[in-house]
Simulated assay, not measured.
Amino acid sequence: MYLYLIEHNIKINEFYEGKIIGIVSTREKAEKIVKEYERKKGFKEHKNDFKIKKIELDKDYYGNGFKSWYKKGDE
């Protein structure tokens, strides 16, 4: 079974700020949610920064690496 992860990532200086918007069962539902968010403050200025990722349920993704986020100065 596949799900669709909706993310919004913007670059601020040299760092990225990422938000997980939601996880839905179909790509059509994901695209509908993105269209709604494209009109909202904080998102409408960055319409091209949405990503929809198809993910497989019950799959180990750690083997593919992982993402780390930290604030400048926390290195």
Rank of each mutant, 00 (worst) to 15 (best):
S68V: 09
W69I: 10
E14M: 07
K32I: 03
I52N: 08
K11I: 01
K72S: 06
S25F: 15
D60G: 13
I52W: 00
M1I: 04
D74W: 13
I23C: 10
G65F: 00
E7Q: 04
T26V: 09
D74K: 05
G63T: 01
Y37D: 01
G65V: 08
E38P: 01
E28Q: 12
K67W: 10
K35R: 11
K35W: 04
K51C: 06
K40M: 09
K19T: 10
K51L: 11
K71V: 07
Y61T: 01
I21S: 10
I33M: 03
N13L: 09
Y70C: 11
N64E: 14
W69M: 02
E14A: 02
K11H: 13
E45M: 02
G42D: 02
I23K: 02
I12E: 15
H8L: 03
K11S: 13
H46A: 13
K54Y: 08
K71Q: 13
G65C: 06
E36R: 05
E7D: 04
N9H: 10
Y70H: 13
E17A: 04
M1R: 02
V24N: 11
K11A: 15
A30E: 00
Y4T: 05
I12T: 14
R27C: 08
I21K: 07
F50T: 09
F66I: 07
E14N: 02
D60Q: 10
D60V: 14
K11R: 15
K54E: 14
I12V: 15
K41R: 05
E28K: 14
I21L: 02
S25K: 15
F15A: 09
K41P: 05
L5E: 11
D74Q: 12
I52V: 05
K32V: 06
K40C: 06
H46K: 02
I12H: 15
K51S: 13
I55W: 00
N48Y: 05
R27V: 01
I23E: 09
S25P: 15
G22L: 09
E17F: 03
E38H: 04
K72F: 03
V34C: 02
I12S: 15
W69K: 03
Y62S: 14
N48K: 12
T26P: 09
L57Y: 14
Y4V: 01
H8I: 08
K41Y: 00
E7M: 11
G18K: 12
D49R: 00
K53H: 08
Y2A: 03
F66K: 02
G63K: 08
Y16A: 00
Y61H: 01
E7A: 00
I52R: 08
V34W: 09
Y70E: 06
K44R: 05
E14C: 05
E75S: 13
L5H: 14
I12L: 15
I33F: 07
N64M: 04
Y2D: 05
I20T: 15
I33V: 09
E75W: 07
F43N: 00
Y2W: 01
E28A: 15
M1W: 11
G42C: 00
I20N: 07
R27W: 08
E75G: 12
V34R: 03
K59M: 02
G65S: 09
G63Q: 06
N13C: 05
